[in-house]
């Protein structure tokens, strides 16, 4: 319904931020974002406006929520344990950025 794309703020000039979207940069306006935004923050862009500063801690929180969902399941099913071992082995994305 609403294409929202997260990107990383690389520069700020007044209410205008330059945001890097995985290799492509674009100006994003900060008029309606509800928290102060600094260089290095992630923001969610929709039609040229940042509608949310994405705190890194809450990226972790979302992931933790998912882990919890799977952990509940673990107890009930040994198969899931195998998959979880696989997850532990892959380290799918390094935690460097978050």
């Amino acid at each position: 319904m609403c294409l929202g794309v997260p990107g990383k703020v690389v520069a700020i000039d007044g209410n205008r931020a330059t945001v890097d979207f995985w290799g492509v940069r674009r100006q994003v306006l900060l008029d309606v974002v509800d928290e102060p935004v600094a260089v290095g923050d992630y923001v969610l862009n929709h039609v040229g406006y940042a509608i949310r500063r994405i705190p890194e801690s809450e990226i972790g929180e979302t992931l933790a929520l998912f882990e919890e969902l799977l952990a509940q399941d673990d107890a009930a099913d040994l198969m899931a344990g195998d998959v979880r071992a696989e997850i532990a082995g892959t380290g799918a994305a390094p935690d460097g950025e978050s």
Binding site: E86, A92, A93
Partner: peptide, 26 residues
């Protein structure tokens, strides 16, 4: 890939997705 460290990628991890699909089945 400059996205290699991008946190959003964590939400595109096929292995975790497989675990989630199993959880969905249960």
């Amino acid at each position: 890939d400059p996205r290699a460290g991008f946190a959003e990628l964590k939400f595109r991890d096929p292995v975790r997705a497989r675990a989630m699909v199993e959880a969905m089945g249960r």
